[in-house]
């Protein structure tokens, strides 16, 4: 008698297996996907979020957010914020990971020191840094005073030129530990024999990093960049907690503008139009990034 399931490929995987995914799919569709579809619908109405007697207004919402300049301003702020956190977090995070991967003494302490801020809630971080940036009596101002500067004129959050960079710095402070830990794990997967081969061929330290280690952790780089880009495009916390979008519109990110319009101004139609455009921007950037980075990865 022959067993028809002799080959492992014959193990039965029936379609009925999909039942395992049903609970997740149900929650996901009702509380995540359906609300997204609602946005597209509301973006053509003058719905205020409360009263269901609304009218269709065509593309009026879109025309308004463009003519007011709020859309372009938020997009530019968000892109600048994202660029700052992606570049700084990845360059410093990677450098730290290389240093902590050398087997030096005290590695554990430094790793913990860099990672600790990631354990704090964004709201607590917002409070702490509101103090750090406070004019005249805050930490930065006091330190500037200590060195003979004029700390009381230094208002980093209240200044158009510095506000956005300042909250991006807070984001980096909170999240760089996570980026570093992911890079460290990536470096630990590097096969030592490749590095040794490079050393035998007489590579300098810099060449070892550039031509052997970096290409070998290209997947990790992709993941960190993607995670940071997504976090940057979703930026909301520190505009909400620390600056309330100000001064003026200097720290209005896409997500903060949408929240502000929907909750404070009760203009759900306008907020939805804003969301639809933001959604397009996020999807577009993610796709471009994934295509571009997939091409660069090295497979072993």
């Amino acid at each position: 008698m022959k067993n028809k399931n002799k080959k492992s490929g014959m193990l039965v995987m029936p379609n009925r297996m999909y039942i395992f995914a049903v609970p997740a799919l149900l929650l996901f569709s009702v509380f995540w996907i359906y609300p997204v579809l609602q946005l597209f619908y509301y973006s053509f109405t003058n719905f205020n979020g409360i009263n269901y007697n609304y009218d269709f207004v065509g593309f009026k919402n879109f025309a308004r957010i463009i003519s007011e300049g709020s859309l372009l301003n938020s997009i530019l702020n968000t892109l600048l914020y994202t660029l700052i956190i992606v570049v700084v977090s990845n360059v410093i995070g990677l450098a730290l990971a290389f240093m902590l991967n050398m087997g030096l003494k005290g590695t554990r302490f430094y790793r913990t020191a860099v990672y600790i801020p990631a354990l704090f809630s964004a709201i607590v971080v917002g409070f702490i840094w509101s103090y750090v940036y406070m004019p005249s009596s805050g930490m930065v101002a006091s330190i500037v005073d200590l060195f003979g500067g004029e700390g009381k004129w230094l208002n980093l959050l209240g200044n158009y030129q510095t506000a956005l960079v300042s909250i991006a710095a807070v984001d980096i402070w909170k999240n760089i530990g996570t980026t570093m830990i992911i890079y460290l794990a990536g470096l630990q997967t590097v096969n030592e024999s490749y590095v040794e081969a490079g050393m035998i061929d007489g590579c300098t330290d810099w060449q070892l990093i550039k031509y052997i280690k970096l290409p070998l952790i290209s997947t990790t780089i992709t993941i960190n960049v993607v995670l940071n880009v997504i976090a940057g495009l979703k930026a909301f916390d520190f505009s909400f907690i620390m600056t309330n979008g100000g001064p003026g519109r200097a720290t209005n990110t896409l997500m903060f503008s949408i929240f502000q319009m929907a909750f404070n101004d009760q203009m759900m139609g306008k907020a939805s139009a804003f969301s639809v455009v933001s959604f397009a921007v996020i999807v577009l950037i993610t796709i471009i990034m994934l295509i571009h980075m997939n091409r660069k990865e090295v497979e072993f």
Binding site: K234, I258, F279
Partner: peptide, 13 residues
């Protein structure tokens, strides 16, 4: 679903 921010869809939710 990972790229959709919660703030964007909080009112419909």
């Amino acid at each position: 679903g990972m790229v959709i921010p919660a703030q964007m869809i909080i009112v419909p939710i």
